[in-house]
Design a protein around this nucleic acid. Structure first.
Length: 475
RNA sequence: GGCGGAGUAGCCAAGUGGGAAGGCCGAGGUCUGCAAAACCUCUACGAGUGGGUUCGACUCCCACCUCCGCCUCCA
């Protein structure tokens, strides 16, 4: 079975086929952050979804080359830099660094390229593309000295969003004083400099200014991945007008179909409410880390709902994520321990790995179906229950455990849920030793006191039939 | 007004024209010095509401209600 993905353009599930004749190389572009503040969990939902997509494609044998852009010049970054009294590049660098740190916390695989809009080679390319559009009569400079895309020249505009532009009703945002444009829908390719921009300016054939937002993605995507992309992702709010504009610019410049598969993830709600600063439910990653949640717990919470459905992000959900991960942790540790044991012929009576192999296969088949993560996790938890039961009944030996761990590793390469292997301090190990002696002596008071001492050092000790097990107190 | 998405247990959530996955929480039990874990069992006679098609509808169709998104630079 092949990977099937919902394509925003066709509004249908489609078999995924990359352009590469060998069917292996995948060119993937993902819209990245505008670095004017810390990214919020809504942003990260999109990045976690894109990470799952990449990892699953890799599990299916594809080689993914991914680009994620950084928008480091626009109205918001310029405004922020001015308010902070800093140079634009210094201002955005803070948020770029924070962004990369956050990606690591959430175990998101780094893209192969993180191009920034202000890099000279990309600004040059944007100017070149605008020049090309102007030569074709598609771009024009208006009286305000900005350069616009002439929508009348691109009839396909609106097809991605399935909007009929003739029926568009003016919303409150449109009636700005942009009367210089030929058509209300024409979007900026080059924004002429004005005083509010300060020293943020590049020279161009149309005078000083800066690139429009949309051209940035077209320039960087085609520079790094070529004229045709296999996959382009973003949040649903990027569909219109950003991605429409990207299609228009790119296809007019290259004469080729820009993107084969468009994927967009739905928005996130917080505690059933729209996330907004005024509602007080606006969270960045660091807000949640300060509340004691870990990156992988947040990753789990962001990942467990299919990307096309709205996700209700709640603290109860985070607690649930913590508990579910704890269940996985215990299971992984259990089969790891089982593997490292010498087979006990008296207990081990033969395994039934066919069940587990079936679950493993089903896990990946669920993801093939437009990243059905809930279905896939259902298979994983069935696998956990079945193998736990087999362990309890002695129908499981080191060889089976070894096989099962390999299956888990391939699953974890997609989920990235495995706990960090925290090194146990020698002091804790020494206390555990002493406690074992106390238990052997049936000195329960000493045993309980030692358990408290171990807890005070941040570790929880549990007595299983295979001996004491340690785990960090805070997941 | 146009276009699109969604309503399944206390919470999250999946598949399916014919027995309603899975996770969290909860209850009982086995095990255990205790605790925890693990394991076993139980928890929606019903799927927003009302119709219709069908031998049979949570699934298909229609209407209505509610929520969410987009409608010119918010993931």
């Amino acid at each position: 079975m092949s990977v099937r993905l919902f394509n925003t353009y066709s509004r249908h599930l489609e078999d995924f086929r990359p352009l590469d004749p060998a069917g292996r190389q995948v060119k993937m572009y993902t819209c990245g952050p505008t670095v004017y503040n810390h990214a919020h969990i809504g942003n990260f939902r999109a990045y976690v979804f894109e990470d799952l997509l990449q990892r699953h494609l890799e599990a299916r044998g594809f080689v993914v080359e991914r680009v994620m852009n950084l928008t480091d010049v626009d109205d918001k970054t310029i405004r922020g830099a001015r308010a902070a009294g800093r140079r634009l590049a210094d201002f955005t660098q803070v948020y770029k660094d924070a962004f990369f740190h956050d990606l690591e916390t959430l175990r998101i695989k780094p893209a192969n390229h993180f191009p920034a809009a202000t890099e000279p080679r990309y600004v040059e390319r944007m100017i070149a593309m605008i020049g090309q559009l102007e030569a074709q009569g598609i771009a024009y400079q208006a009286e305000d000295r900005s350069v616009y895309f002439r929508l009348a020249k691109f009839p396909d505009y609106g097809k991605l969003a399935h909007l009929n532009l003739d029926e568009l009703r003016p919303s409150g945002r449109v009636n700005s004083d942009e009367y210089e444009k030929e058509n209300i829908g024409d979007f900026a390719l080059w924004k002429a400099w004005d005083e509010a921009d300060g020293d943020v300016r590049w020279e161009s054939p149309w005078g000083p200014g800066r690139p429009g937002w949309h051209i940035e993605c077209s320039a960087m995507a085609t520079a790094l991945l070529g004229p045709e992309l296999d996959i382009h992702c973003g949040g649903v709010d990027n569909i219109f007008p950003h991605h429409e504009a990207e299609i228009a610019q790119s296809e007019c410049c290259t004469g080729r179909k820009f993107v084969r598969h468009w994927l967009h993830c739905a928005h996130l709600m917080v505690e059933g409410q729209k996330m907004s600063k005024s509602a007080g439910n606006f969270y960045t990653l660091r807000d949640l880390l300060e509340k004691g949640f870990t990156g992988r717990e947040i990753r789990y919470a962001l990942l467990t709902v299919n990307y096309r459905l709205p996700l209700n992000f709640t603290f109860a959900g985070l607690e649930g994520a913590r508990a579910a991960l704890g269940r996985i942790d215990v299971w992984v540790r259990r089969i790891s321990d089982c593997r490292s044991q010498i087979a006990d012929a008296g207990v081990f009576t033969g395994g039934e790995m066919s069940v587990s192999l079936g679950r493993h296969k089903n896990f990946f088949q669920a993801l093939d179906d437009d990243l059905n993560i809930a279905g896939a996790l259902g298979q994983l938890f069935d696998l956990i229950r079945e193998s736990n039961s087999a362990l309890d009944h002695g129908q499981f030996g080191p060889e089976q455990a070894s096989e099962l761990l390999k299956l888990w590793e391939s699953i974890n390469r997609v989920l990235a849920f495995e706990p960090e292997a925290a090194a146990v301090p020698a002091a804790v190990l020494a206390l555990v030793e002493k406690r074992q002696q106390a238990r052997a002596d049936k000195d329960w008071q000493a045993s309980d006191r030692l358990r408290d001492e171990i807890a005070a050092l941040g570790w929880i000790v549990k007595d299983t039939k295979d001996g004491p097990k340690l785990s960090p107190a805070a997941a």
